[in-house]
Computed example of a mutant assay.
Amino acid sequence: MTPPDRSASPSSRIRVGTSGWRYGSWRGDFYPDGLVQRAELAYIGEHFSTVELNGSFYSLQRPKSYLRWRDAVPDHFTFAVKGSRYISHMLRLRDTTTALANFFASGVLALGPTLGPILWQLPERQEFDPDVLDAFLAGLPRSTAEAKALGSRHDARMRDRTWLEDVADRPLRYALEPRSATFDDPRLAEILNRHGVALTVADTAGRWPRFEPGDTDLVYVRLHGASELYASGYTAQELQDWAERCARWASHGAGRDVFVYFDNDARGHAPHDALALARLVGDDPGDR
């Protein structure tokens, strides 16, 4: 495989990683024999520039977990954080103020400068409702300072398990991953662009629609498997094709960053495919 011709602005960057890192099938394969489980994230930090933190999707994590994860990786590492499925799958993006406050109070901001984009993955049954989506995106904090202010409105269930310390104010970026074909609607781009939210490019072995990225300064890519969802690996030619797409997207404006996460972990392909793509796009985990 040969690296694509990259003409991206020097201020743009392509980062490649995996969706999660704690998988039994990786032990003795990607992770060397004898590596203790608590050292796995540090190993990820040595080999990748980013990882998608997905435990936050299933339940609110605790501040001590976020602090431990941050301490395990280099300062220039980036975590993408999956938003709570309580918000996306149960509330269906409606009446989310308190749930969002609890999410941001739970310790997300403790990641500090390693906090990267936040992903909202929608269920397949969630159909496109422009008013609901517009209202939800309008309620998202645009910076860490706004997120802290929102987090202070958490409910009583979060008492004694919050992290709302002062942090350097930084912009927050979001990506949306819809899985219903009803989102193939010209109004979607208008809403996302108005709020500066990226439309996720998801490769799902044909299970769900693949959308093209919007016009924001973020491109978010999730590779779930080309031929078998969550299970199949990517061929050399498929990785070359994705590398060329990423380089093209990154070249579309100064500061336009591309984040790619492999979620084909069922048979252990994700870290190996991620390493191969990272080499193709020149994503060196040591770059600062």
Rank of each mutant, 00 (worst) to 15 (best):
Q61R: 12
G28N: 13
G28A: 12
R15H: 07
R62L: 12
D29V: 15
Q37P: 13
L60I: 11
D29C: 15
L60G: 08
R62F: 10
V16T: 04
S49Q: 05
S25P: 14
E46Y: 04
I14G: 01
G28V: 14
S59C: 12
S19G: 12
R62T: 11
G24V: 11
T18F: 04
A39H: 13
V51S: 02
Y43I: 00
I44R: 01
A8Y: 04
P4A: 09
S25F: 11
E46N: 09
K64V: 09
S59E: 14
R6M: 11
L41M: 04
R15S: 10
R27S: 15
S7L: 08
V51K: 00
T18D: 04
R15N: 06
W21D: 02
T50N: 04
G20R: 02
F48V: 08
V51M: 02
A8D: 10
D33T: 10
F48L: 07
G28L: 11
W21K: 00
D29A: 15
L41R: 01
T50A: 08
Q61N: 14
V36A: 15
S12F: 05
P4V: 06
S59N: 14
R6W: 10
A42H: 02
P4I: 07
T18I: 08
H47C: 13
E52K: 03
L41P: 03
R27C: 15
S9L: 00
G28P: 13
Q37R: 15
Q61V: 10
Y43L: 04
F30D: 11
S12R: 05
A42E: 05
R38L: 09
A42K: 07
S19H: 09
T50M: 03
W26F: 11
N54K: 06
D29Y: 14
V36T: 15
V36N: 13
G45K: 01
Y31S: 09
D29W: 14
A39Y: 10
W26D: 04
S56E: 03
W26L: 07
T18C: 09
G17E: 07
P4K: 05
R27L: 14
R6T: 12
S12K: 05
Y23E: 03
V16F: 01
S12M: 08
Y43W: 06
G24I: 08
I44V: 12
R62A: 09
S49P: 05
R6Q: 13
Q61A: 12
S49G: 12
T50E: 04
E40A: 05
S25M: 14
A39S: 14
T50W: 00
R13L: 08
G55A: 11
D33N: 10
T50G: 06
G20N: 07
V51W: 00
R27K: 15
R15F: 04
Y23A: 03
F30E: 12
W26G: 04
S12I: 05
W21S: 02
V51Q: 01
Y43E: 02
E52H: 04
E52G: 00
H47P: 12
S25L: 15
D5T: 14
S12P: 08
P4L: 03
Y43N: 00
S7D: 11
T18K: 01
Q61G: 12
E52Y: 02
Y23R: 01
G45P: 04
Y23L: 01
G17I: 07
L53W: 02
F57E: 03
G45E: 06
F57Q: 05
E40D: 06
R27T: 15
S56A: 08
L60F: 09
I44S: 03
A8G: 09
R27I: 15
V16Q: 01
F57G: 06
D33H: 08
G28D: 13
G34E: 01
